[in-house]
């Protein structure tokens, strides 16, 4: 690297500061998950696995974790299927109201989740879908369509239309062309959107808050526990979630790179 000017050196420091701001809190979370004390304050009280043991002994928390995983898997599968189809329709066909559809599908990305949750709650009440994990799955799948549609459409826009013509020219019908040419070219987008949808669904609170019934997800469990106060168990499960998230990121970066 060439010699930096004084203000550039200052910026290096600034950037390190911002990165520290972004990561120190996560480090603090992990450190306190091993701290042998009920309060989260310095000086540290010594190392313990106790809070992790407590997590695995907490049936309520484990059920919530299981519910979250079920919801995230189902919602991701559903939203990928519908979202990919939606992206294909929006990419290939013109029809009246197309702009409205695209904007409606993308709206939940920028709209506070709460508003989407309220809209869904109103509607589900009217048509009689009870508050339940099923309602949450449908809600998540719908709210996350925007993630899938935006990513897949961006990819479709980059896909050369002539490839489809070439495939047809070489004797492949539309279905074969879809599976052998279109799908491989949008696979990275689908994969990326799937991972993102899973993470978002797993972590989702506002929509879940309104749509869930007696069965609660992990974020809702943590949220309602926190309103009462801090328990170090949350640090432990939180650290585990952070670890899994980081693993997922490394995995997805690796996967997407190999595809290139």
């Amino acid at each position: 690297m060439k010699q930096l000017l004084w203000w550039q050196k200052g910026m290096v420091g600034f950037v390190f500061g911002v990165l520290a701001f972004l990561y120190l809190p996560i480090v603090v979370l992990i450190v306190f998950s091993f701290n042998d004390s009920k309060v989260t304050s310095f000086p540290l009280a010594g190392f313990t696995w106790h809070w992790y043991q407590a997590v695995f002994a907490n049936a309520q928390m484990l059920t919530a974790l299981k519910n979250s995983l079920i919801v995230a898997v189902c919602a991701t599968g559903l939203t990928l299927t519908i979202g990919t189809l939606a992206a294909l329709v929006l990419d290939r066909h013109d029809f009246p109201g197309k702009g409205l559809f695209r904007n409606a599908i993308l709206l939940p990305l920028s709209l506070p989740g709460l508003v989407t949750g309220i809209a869904m709650l109103n509607f589900y009440k009217q048509i009689g879908i009870p508050q339940s994990l099923t309602a949450v799955v449908i809600g998540h799948a719908t709210a996350l369509l925007g993630v899938v549609v935006s990513q897949v459409m961006a990819r479709l826009a980059k896909t050369d239309h002539r490839l489809l013509e070439a495939s047809a020219d070489l004797g492949a019908g539309p279905v074969e062309t879809f599976f052998r040419v279109t799908l491989p070219s949008i696979r990275p987008a689908i994969l990326g959107a799937g991972l993102l949808s899973f993470t978002l669904s797993f972590d989702e609170i506002p929509v879940t808050y309104f749509l869930t019934g007696r069965d609660i997800t992990l974020p809702i469990y943590i949220y309602s526990t926190l309103r009462r106060g801090i328990t170090p168990e949350i640090n432990a499960i939180g650290s585990m979630i952070v670890l899994v998230s980081l693993l997922l990121i490394v995995l997805s970066v690796g996967l997407l790179r190999d595809r290139k």
Partner: peptide, 13 residues
């Protein structure tokens, strides 16, 4: 019939 496309349209994958 078969076509040789402008810019070839080879399947990149």
């Amino acid at each position: 019939v078969n076509t040789v496309f402008q810019d070839y349209a080879l399947f990149p994958h």
